[in-house]
Simulated scan of single mutants.
Amino acid sequence: MARIVRHTHRAGRPTVVVVSARGDTTDELIRQALELNPSPSARESDQLLATGENQSAALLAMALHEIGVPAMSLTGPQAGILADGRHGAGVIAAIDTSRVLRHLDDGNVVVVSGFQGMDTHGDIITLGRGGSDTTAVALAAALDAASCEIYTDVDGVYTADPRIVPGARVLSHVDAGVMTEMAFAGAQVLHSRAVELAAVHGMDLQVRSSYTQSAGTTILGRSCQQVMESQGFVTAVTHDREVVWAQVRATRPAPGLATVVFDALAQKSVPVDLVSWSGPGESEPRLGFALHRRDLPVAQDLLAQLAAELGCVTELDDQVGKLSVVGTGLLNRPEYTVRMLLALSAAGITPSWGATTQLRSSVIIPADRLTEAVTTLHREFELDRDDAESMPA
């Protein structure tokens, strides 16, 4: 990574690098915390987890010094990143770029710790999953940067997880809206919040490998209908093993049950997906939704409290996965959802819940069938074809 940065710096372009923690550092820090306390303080957890990115920033700056590149590492707060929200799920509220610009003017590469900012109390607050991607895009926007490049360990954005589908292809271009859905549906190469932020600022993102010279994938911040149409209606198959299916059933009439439940989750910044609920005429109102496994502890506490207050029964199933076909115009092309369901049925896989939007058709299936299901749908929509981007599925 230092050699890539050196190449950019020698080309005369002022450069800011945002880093995340290396490898399994964050997971290891979480493990250490849980060994000491099964319910660690959210504030102290953020204090701890932020050190993973700080290590990366300092080490990259040292590596740059070694190869003759002047560099300065900054933590998120030192880089002027201010954040709101709860610990572990903060959002960037503002960025004071004065210190970053000062170091750039001095000829330094500025290496910034991603995933973190400072709240109004002066405390570290981490930004949740994908926080380093979001930090990079937010800084690029605040600095009015000419480009924002995301370097990772894969060659770009694939039509499916290449570890599961050997025939998966790297997509040369992906519309921001499609990429947001892919990220939210389980594609791990880029976080949905980062893509959304880039789209708001009309910024293209370049996703490429730090190990190869491949062209990678361009995420189009300015939506282009011509490009969207040339990609075909089905762009990729994604999956997410880290989901939990929740069902809430009222044992007595409960007007506004969905509103109460989702309002409580929203106040704790817990996003939900594939929402479904019964009509007002039901004697036992029910609602169901998918949530991410990382949000389960918070959601469990909230649902237990609501169950006691409203007389509800809550069921949580963590032996499921979310499977999605992502593309464009899926509501206008219902035959694609039908093809998805028929292909799964032919493989003996029965979804339990599902929903379709213009950009995504998702179902909940048993976790132990996810790998087979991804391969099945990738084959069904012929996404391994070299000309798949230029032809309807």
Rank of each mutant, 00 (worst) to 15 (best):
L171K: 11
T97P: 05
L36Q: 11
A355H: 06
L49T: 05
D119C: 05
L205D: 01
N108S: 10
G156S: 10
V17D: 02
T180H: 10
L359E: 08
I95C: 03
T376E: 11
A50K: 03
R286K: 12
I364P: 01
W245P: 00
L59Q: 13
I92K: 00
M228H: 01
D153Y: 06
R22L: 15
S113D: 02
M340Q: 14
A250F: 09
V275Y: 00
D318E: 15
L59E: 13
G348R: 07
M228T: 14
E382N: 12
H292I: 00
Q116E: 12
S283A: 13
T180L: 08
A236F: 04
Q267G: 10
S223D: 07
M203S: 02
T251Q: 13
V298L: 10
E242Y: 09
I349L: 05
V5S: 05
N54L: 10
V325F: 02
L171Q: 12
V313M: 09
F262K: 00
A299H: 02
R294W: 01
Q55Y: 07
D96E: 15
L383E: 05
V19M: 03
R193Q: 06
D27R: 12
K268A: 15
G114T: 02
D317G: 04
R3A: 14
V227E: 13
T134F: 04
D368H: 14
R333Y: 03
A290S: 14
A142L: 07
V248E: 02
E181W: 04
L316E: 11
I349T: 08
L310V: 01
F184P: 00
M228F: 00
H201P: 02
V272M: 06
T251L: 15
G76F: 03
E284G: 00
D295C: 08
H9Q: 11
M203A: 03
A61T: 13
T97E: 13
G288C: 09
E44V: 12
A71N: 08
G76D: 04
L143Y: 06
H65P: 01
I365L: 13
L342D: 14
H9A: 15
T259A: 15
H9C: 03
M203K: 06
S278Y: 07
E372C: 06
A355Y: 00
G122C: 08
E149G: 02
V109Y: 06
E382D: 14
V338Q: 12
Q78S: 09
P366Q: 06
S209Q: 03
Y151K: 02
Q47N: 14
F233K: 10
Q47K: 09
L257M: 15
E309L: 11
H7A: 14
S56F: 05
M179G: 05
L383F: 07
H378L: 08
G348T: 08
